[in-house]
Amino acid sequence: MASQRALELLVLNNMNIGTVGDSEKLATLASHVSEADLGWNQISKWSDVACILENLPHLRVLNIGHNPLNPVIDHKLPVSTLHTIILNGTHLSFKTLQSFLSVLPKVTELHMSDNQFNDDDDLNEPISTSVRTIHLNRCGFQKWSSVMNVVRRFPNVNSVFICENPLEDVTHCKHFDSLSSWSSLNMAKTAINSWDSLDDLGKMKSIVDLRIPNIPLLNNLSDEERLHLIIGRIHHLRVLNGSKISEEQREQSERFFIRYYQEQKEKPAQYKSLIEKHGNLEKLVNIDLTPKKEAVVKILCEEKEVNTEMTISLEPTILEFMKYLEPKVAVKYTRIKLFLFRGDGRNEDFASSTYNMPLHYFKVEDGDVFMIQEKIVVPKRRRPPSSTSSSSS
C-alpha cells in the first residue's frame, strides 16, 4: 500500500520505536498517511516529532501518547494541519503544551488522559484557543478545582471528558462562567457521592449534555429514580447519558421528583420551584397489572352432585382445565360444557374457539363459580339399507 501511495492509516503501536530514522524514506512511504498511531513507544526527541509533522503533509490524527517525550521542546516544530493530537501519559507541563499546540492551530480534539497535572502551574495565558474537545480521563483528579485548573486554559472548549477520576465533588466557580462554549460533560465512573454536586452542575447553565453513569451517588437507586431525579434537579439538560430529553420526559421527571420528596423532611431547593410549576400532586397508587396466578373458585355440577370449593391455577388453557375437571366431576372432558358465573353478575360460556386461551385471560377472581354440564350426545341414526326390486322370468 505504501508503494502504491494508498497507505492512509499507519499503526506502529508498542513497537519499541525510539527514532523515526530515514526521513526521506518516511516521506516516500507515508506521504498519504492521514492517521498515525505511534503510541507506547520510546520516542523522546522533539526532532523526531518535527520529522513526522514535516513528512506527513496529509496527517490529521497523531497518537504519540505514552512516549517519554522530553519535557522541554528543544527543536523547531513545523506548523501542521492536525485536527486530533493524542498525548496520553506524556506528563507535559502547561508551558510545553502551549508551545506544541501553537504550531497546531487547527487542532480541535486533545487527548491528555493518564497525565498528572500540577495545580501550582503558574501559566496564565490560554494553552489553545482552537481545542473544542479535551479528554482528561484517569488523571487522578480528586477536586473540581483541579479539573478547572486544566479546562479553563482552553477558553473555547465544548466537550470535556473526566471519566475514571476519583473526583468526589463538583463546585460551581467563577472560572466556569468564562467558558461560555462548554456544553457537554462526561463524568462516568467518578466518585461523586453528593446531591450537592448535582445541584452545582445545575448552576452551570451552558452544560446541556451530561453523562454521569456508574457513580456511588446513584448505586442504590433504580434506573427510574436515577433518570427522574437527575432531570428533576438539572432543569436545563437536553441530553442525559446519551438520550435526548423530550418535553414529555421532563414533565414526567419533574412530577416524579415532587412525589419522591413529598413526604421527606429535607427537600432540595428545586422542590419549591417545581411545586410552583406543577402544584401539589396526589401520591400515585401502585396498581399491579400482572395476571393473577391462582384463584379460589367454586366448582358446581348438579348432574353429578358436585359442589366444592378449590384453589385453581390460572395458567392452564380452558381445554387443560376441562381435562383437570374430568375426574373431579366424573364427566369426560370432551363432553363437558363449561360456564363461568362472576360475582358481579356477568357470565362466560366457553365455546370451542376459546379452548386454547389461558384461564387468566378471562380475569377469573376469587369467589367465581364454574358450572359444568354434561353434553347430551345424540347417537347418529344409521340409514336403512336401500331396497332393490328383483324380477324373475
Rank of each mutant, 00 (worst) to 15 (best):
I245V: 09
I245Q: 07
I245F: 08
I245S: 03
I245T: 08
S246M: 09
S246C: 05
S246T: 13
S246N: 08
E247N: 14
E247F: 13
E247R: 15
E247K: 15
E247P: 03
E247W: 13
E247A: 14
E247Q: 15
E248L: 13
E248P: 03
E248A: 08
E248T: 09
E248S: 08
Q249C: 12
Q249V: 10
Q249S: 12
Q249R: 12
R250G: 05
R250P: 02
E251A: 11
E251Q: 12
E251W: 03
E251I: 10
E251R: 13
E251M: 07
Q252N: 06
Q252F: 03
Q252G: 00
Q252E: 13
E254L: 05
R255L: 06
F256M: 04
F257N: 07
F257C: 07
F257W: 11
F257H: 12
F257M: 13
I258F: 12
I258D: 00
I258M: 02
I258E: 03
I258R: 03
R259K: 11
R259Q: 07
Y260W: 14
Y260G: 04
Y260E: 00
Y261W: 15
Y261L: 05
Y261N: 10
Y261S: 09
Y261D: 01
Y261G: 02
Q262R: 13
Q262L: 12
E263N: 14
E263D: 09
E263L: 10
E263V: 01
Q264Y: 13
Q264P: 10
Q264S: 13
Q264A: 06
Q264C: 08
K265E: 10
E266C: 07
E266F: 12
E266K: 14
E266V: 15
K267D: 00
K267T: 01
K267E: 01
P268E: 04
P268C: 04
Q270V: 07
Q270R: 15
Q270F: 02
Y271N: 06
K272L: 06
K272S: 09
S273P: 00
S273L: 04
L274G: 08
L274K: 02
L274N: 02
L274Q: 07
L274H: 04
I275V: 11
I275P: 02
E276G: 14
E276I: 06
E276T: 11
E276M: 12
E276W: 13
K277I: 00
K277Q: 04
K277M: 08
K277P: 03
H278Y: 15
H278E: 10
H278V: 09
